[in-house]
Design a protein around this nucleic acid. Structure first.
Lengths: 148, 148
DNA sequence: TTTTAATCCGACCCCCATATCCTTAATTAG
DNA sequence: CTAATTAAGGATATGGGGGTCGGATTAAAA
């Protein structure tokens, strides 16, 4: 995959969190999604520091979305966890190919790629991933029913 | 950049190697391109094992292209050094999004990206990078002349 | 007020990419 | 044959991402 595994975990966790204001526990999310618990907790902490999640400690605490799901973009999450450098610079690392003249042979294709991905990442939100998450649940339930 | 630094070094080195059948020394290439010498040597060894370079030891030895430059694609070099996994699977690592139905919201964009890049990598050859290399040399010489 | 439940925070592994160095093997020049 | 030259290969740092663990901190509940 293109993103780091941490980013992938974050997106899956965000998509699985309820929007009713209740707080989810890191370990519940982890067991539900079958992700490494302590690691996911650390990632959620980062997201809280970046203002994407809100967290409270103590009993009845946990993590919840800091904003409505449709106002958190995939790009934001990527930037929060990886920085912006992921898709910058020449594909092959040719120094003289920094966006202006003298482009490398892959420059045009790469620029289109970047524009494409960038547009997607600013338009796709956690809300879109929630829908996907629900579909997957339906499918899993269906598979279990048929398999039994 | 998208590729590993090793792949970037390899592409630059391949683009800088002469096609007249003479052998280049790893350290000459490294100093010419300002790359870490021992590391580049290791990379060139890998390329030799993969059949992209030919190498001989001893005096007047070194590395040369195993084939004409226009018959070595960028994709081959990437595959030789990184494997094919680089651009496979879902962008966010969603398991249920493996190419068929139930695609993630970035699936379509990502597939277009992959197709685009794949086409480029199988069509762009070292020959194309040689031309780029020469242009950069001209530019550097020009800059030096003007600067002096 | 004490207990409990949770995040928070730091210290610590493991693995891999990057990078270096040294020894060994091969080949040529003298 | 010997010495010089060069790649090949192994051992060894180094840094970051992935991942675990335990204690400190906070806040609610008993």
């Amino acid at each position: 995959m293109l993103f780091s595994t941490a980013t992938g975990y974050a997106l899956r966790a965000l998509a699985a969190m309820p929007e009713d204001g209740t707080y989810s526990l890191a370990k519940d999310l982890a067991s539900h999604l079958e992700l490494p618990g302590p690691y996911l907790a650390k990632i959620l902490q980062s997201l809280a520091q970046e203002g994407i999640l809100h967290s409270v400690r103590g009993p009845r605490g946990g993590f919840r979305l800091a904003r409505p799901a449709h106002r958190i973009t995939v790009g934001e999450v990527v930037e929060a966890l990886e920085g912006i450098e992921t898709m910058q610079g020449c594909v092959m690392g040719f120094a003289a190919c920094s966006n202006h003249d003298n482009p490398c042979p892959l420059h045009k294709a790469w620029n289109e790629v970047k524009a494409h991905m960038d547009a997607s990442m600013t338009h796709v939100t956690i809300r879109d991933l929630q829908i996907l998450d629900m579909q997957q649940h339906r499918e899993r339930a269906e598979a279990a029913r048929v398999g039994a």
